[in-house]
Design a protein around this nucleic acid. Sequence first.
DNA 1: CGCTGTGTTGAATGCCGTCAACGTCGGTGG
DNA 2: CCACCGACGTTGACGGCATTCAACACAGCG
Lengths: 232, 232
Amino acid sequence: MPLDRSLISGLALFAEMTPAEQEDILAKARSSRHPKDAVIFAQEEEAHSFFVLLAGHIRVVKTTPDGEQVIARYINEGELFGIAPAIGRTTYPASAIAAVDCVALAWPTRLWSDFASSYPSLTSNTYATVGRRLQETQQRVVEMSTEQVEQRVAHTILRLIKQAGRKTPEGIEIDFPITRQDIAEMTGTTLHTVSRLMSAWEDEGIVVGGRQKVTVSDPHRLMLIAEHRRKR
Amino acid sequence: MPLDRSLISGLALFAEMTPAEQEDILAKARSSRHPKDAVIFAQEEEAHSFFVLLAGHIRVVKTTPDGEQVIARYINEGELFGIAPAIGRTTYPASAIAAVDCVALAWPTRLWSDFASSYPSLTSNTYATVGRRLQETQQRVVEMSTEQVEQRVAHTILRLIKQAGRKTPEGIEIDFPITRQDIAEMTGTTLHTVSRLMSAWEDEGIVVGGRQKVTVSDPHRLMLIAEHRRKR
DNA sequence: CGCTGTGTTGAATGCCGTCAACGTCGGTGG
DNA sequence: CCACCGACGTTGACGGCATTCAACACAGCG
């Protein structure tokens, strides 16, 4: 059964393409479902495909030779991922793991160069994405160089609720399961320190904890902590 | 006086272009000299131009709101820099400072889109560069998350001698003036810690220090330190 | 010849990682 | 149903690495 154009017509990535072009691209796509915790592709693996995430959230993880993990980023709905070919790689530089049940579209890597020449808007959107990620990553380097752990964790949580926040009666909640360990791997610290910080924030009424869940009830005060302007 | 094609014909960036195309691009370029310590462009400034470095070394620096500095990278001869337009920015995300006397070519930003459509090889080379920088930056995040200061400094120095090393009787020397403070700003530590580490390494005969100078006499042992496999 | 930028080194402080123990939640299977 | 077990989370104690504070040495330059 052919894929319906409505799947992608709402995405900014394809917004500048004609319906016929969208159909064409869809005709070459394969859709895939990935249950929670599934490995969509693995670091170092031959980059057979590139993807667009239609639904869910994906964790992109880099693993060091001695087994330590660092979370490079989370992918949201509508975003490209696994675009190794676009940056001149033949293997994936990290692993992609479904944080929740996910639906994605996949194209064989070899189609990338065709797409790039046929659909300039796709190319420019892709490189805008790569550029944005470069800037985000550099910002992260700056934070890791200049800030203390508490500020980094606060910044990271603020970023998460900004890009994947969902309103609840108690505040804004991160829309996918996330452990203290995950947050530690995003900030370069340990789950112990994250736990301590969040316990303290919970006592102050800034966040509400929960198993694999983070809800921010007072974003403003969290921002003050992130900016290191908390009175004390 | 028109610029000579030989200026760029040897650069990988332009290797796939015809002589006529190279002439065309050069005709639109402006060449510029920048003495040591000159600010070539400043963070947040409107991105009026993009550049290719013909000779010298450039330090790319991000400054935080409260005045702390982080060195994002060094630019070598033949590399693009200031390519804000290519990643969808209108202002520069960092400042570029001449580490030594430099010669560069500059084009007005508004020409970028023309170039991008007229010279596909230039585009793909540019994005390969952006992709490479993204990967380098992510690698840096991984290092900052998982390694101790000593390993990070060792890795950084090894990277510097790899990309800008010059052989001397005493070992391999970094080809531009670099202070302890600079190394601290690349590794997220303080000049004090860098100085202590390098003094220790000098005692062990691994490096030779000097004012604004670093020479590595035993790269192999430095690599062992970087990999944290030093016997002790 | 003083001044500024750079580099070195000692001592003290403290942040946060490490080690350890325990608590809790949720799924699973007897 | 409930006992069990593994994953997740919390908390205390301790210690070490690196920053901070301080003082001094040295080079280059106007």
